[in-house]
Design a protein around this nucleic acid. Structure first.
Lengths: 163, 163
DNA sequence: AACCTGACTTCAGATCATTGAAGTCAGATG
DNA sequence: CATCTGACTTCAATGATCTGAAGTCAGGTT
């Protein structure tokens, strides 16, 4: 029907597992992982704040934070407020902050199809104040409107299936 | 340390659940959901092709497909090849295809941080052939390089916490 | 010395996701 | 009419994940 939907290469000749989509999804699973990362983007850093704002149990939060530190999306940094003892907070690393592009794409999709025009967050350009969204652009500088104008093909990390 | 990390609004005054991030992540969970959607983007439409290419069990695939149809990311369309009986295939809907922006953002992140420069897929601009990636742009037309230049604030769907 | 707070850990029980093996079912084809 | 194929469903078993309640622990305050 629509030739854009059908790849020109033989999908069955290539083993794509584990591929980038699966890897990224695995980094964000279990579902509570997303809650924690969302709060990290909103500026949350401390255990009890995460606990209250995500509504998860301390046990779950504790494992999630440990995994996020292992994955290097967060770093545990000691801090000390005057007259209190030293405590630890969790901060986004570069790798963690870079995930924001993915989260913003998710927010855009959810707002277009799920929240009925009433998004829970608004993203603004720092300084300019205008609303922010994701677009696609190719390396020659063309903006890409429709997802159909993108074609996927096996990359350098794809392994041919042996027979 | 870095004021961009701290929101100017009081996070605790707003109830953001369920928010766009959680909703989008819920649409993609369980993790096998992502595998199925990935294959759908690569052009897969039939049960046995999904089965072989994702490596999941028929039971799991069957539930995933059913859920994706319920969510309206896929539609079940009957087709008939000459000399075979009528069968069904699963095609991306507009809503499903629109998720591609999110998947492309994920692929970009995974390629920058996880696959060590050897991505399993390459995305090209149809026609022009150049590589495709996600960028952020505000509604005034500024391109946004760094995730730190984006600030989040409560949107129209956020509900104030009642006291 | 007793208490408080923030940051956890431990545990039992419940639910959910997944696999593997086996079985169903309907309409061609030989 | 027996067989084949594509598209499933059913089932038992396993493992991951989550919650809620309770407990720990260290350093500071009263």
């Amino acid at each position: 029907m629509d030739h854009h939907d059908v790849p020109e290469w033989d999908r069955d000749a290539w083993n794509l597992n584990p591929d980038s989509v699966a890897l990224a999804l695995a980094a964000l699973a279990p579902p509570t992982m997303g809650l924690v990362m969302r709060e990290a983007f909103y500026g949350t850093r401390r255990f009890d704040d995460f606990l209250r704002r995500t509504g998860m149990s301390p046990a779950a939060l504790s494992s999630r934070l440990r995994e996020l530190v292992t994955q290097e999306l967060l770093v545990k940094v000691p801090y000390k407020e005057p007259g209190a003892r030293e405590r630890a907070e969790y901060r986004l690393t570069e790798k963690g902050r870079d995930l924001m592009f993915t989260l913003i794409a998710m927010i855009g999709w959810a707002d277009r199809w799920l929240t009925g025009g009433r998004p829970t967050v608004t993203l603004r350009h720092q300084g300019c104040g205008a609303l922010v969204g994701t677009i696609l652009r190719c390396s020659k500088g063309h903006d890409i409107e429709a997802a159909r104008d993108v074609v996927a093909e096996p990359g350098p990390g794809a392994r041919p299936v042996e027979r």
